[in-house]
Design a protein around this nucleic acid. Structure first.
Lengths: 153, 153
DNA sequence: TCTTTAAATGTTATGTTGTAACAACAAAGA
DNA sequence: TCTTTGTTGTTACAACATAACATTTAAAGA
C-alpha cells in the first residue's frame, strides 16, 4: 500500500469520523491534516504552515494552523507533543485500533515519532506513584526523548 | 528544620559538589539556585530572573539565567521540565539520595512539582518497548501533567 | 608581579512558539 | 431574506529561547 493511498484512506476515515461527531472536516482542515500525514514526522504549527504552502500549495497562516490543530486534536486525529512543541497525525486514524494510553517515542534528531501503546500495568504503576504523592494525572500520555535507528548516536 | 536552613544546607552541598567537579558555584550561580530553592515551585527563566530581582535583590538578566541554568543542569543541581518550559531545583541536592530515573509530577494549575523515583521495573519496561520499536532513550525522565491536592479539579 | 588565557557575565538583537482580539466570510435554519 | 453560528483572515503582541559579540573577572604561567 503506497503512502498516498494510506493518506487518502486516512482522510476519508477522518471525514467520516468528524461527521459522526457532528462536525465538519473543512477544506483547510483536510489540508492541514494531509500535511501532517504526508510529512512523516512531527512538525510545529509554523513548520506545518510552511509545509502546506511549499509542498502542497495551500496557503494557511500559522494562526489558522493552530486553530485547526486544536480542532483536530479534539477529534483525536492529531496529537500534540508537549515535549517537542510539535504535532503528529494519530497513527490510528486509518485502522480500527482503540485509543489507549499512547506512548510517544520522539527522535530528538530527526523528529520521527513512533506511537506505541503501553502495557496497562506500567501506566497503573505510574498512576499509583502519582496518587501516593497526592497528585492526579490529567493526561495519560507519555513522551520520551529518543534517538531512532536512522540517526547517529 | 526550617526552609531557610534547608536552602543553605543545599547551597553548601551544591558548592562542594561543584568543587569536586572542578567547577565553581559563583555568586550569580548561587543566587539563581537559591532563587529556585526558595520559590518552592517550577519557574521559567524569565520568572526566575524576576524572582531573583524582586524577592532577593539580585539583578540577573534572563540571558544570564539561561546560561546559569544550563550550568546547574549539567551539574545535576536543577532539572529542566520540558513539559512546562520551567525549571526546578533537584530535590536531592541536600540528601544522600542517588540519582535515578526521576518522575516529575507537575501541577498544571499551580506549578508545584514533586520529584519521585520510578521503580526500575517500570523504566525497564518502557525502555524495552522503545527498543522493540527501534528507539533508544536518551533521557530517563518522565514528566506528567497532574493536578495536585491543593488545587481544585 | 605582569601577562596571557580562559571562563563568566553583560548587552543587544533576533528567532521561535503561542495567544488575544476583532473583522470578514460562509453555511444553516427560522 | 434575515439571523445565528461557526470558520477563517488579519494584526498585534506575549512568552520562551538563542546568537553574536563586548566586557569583566579569575586563573595560570612566565
Amino acid at each position: 500500500m503506497t503512502r498516498e493511498s494510506l493518506t487518502s484512506t486516512a482522510l476519508e476515515r477522518a471525514e467520516r469520523h468528524c461527521e459522526e461527531q457532528g462536525s465538519k472536516l473543512t477544506d483547510k482542515r483536510r489540508q492541514v491534516l494531509s500535511g501532517l500525514l504526508t510529512s512523516e514526522k512531527a512538525l510545529s504549527a509554523y513548520e506545518l504552515s510552511d509545509f502546506c504552502r511549499t509542498e502542497l500549495g495551500h496557503n494557511i497562516l500559522p494562526m489558522s494552523v493552530y486553530r485547526i490543530l486544536d480542532f483536530l486534536e479534539e477529534q483525536n486525529l492529531v496529537h500534540r507533543l508537549n515535549l517537542a512543541n510539535k504535532y503528529v497525525a494519530c497513527s490510528h486514524i486509518a485502522c480500527e485500533h482503540e485509543h489507549r494510553l499512547p506512548q510517544f517515542l520522539i527522535c530528538t534528531s530527526c523528529h520521527r515519532v513512533e506511537e506505541v501503546s503501553l502495557p496497562s500495568s506500567v501506566m497503573s504503576s505510574i498512576e499509583g506513584g502519582a496518587k501516593t504523592a497526592g497528585y492526579h494525572l490529567v493526561r495519560n500520555q507519555l513522551e520520551l526523548e529518543c534517538i531512532c535507528s536512522d540517526c547517529p548516536a
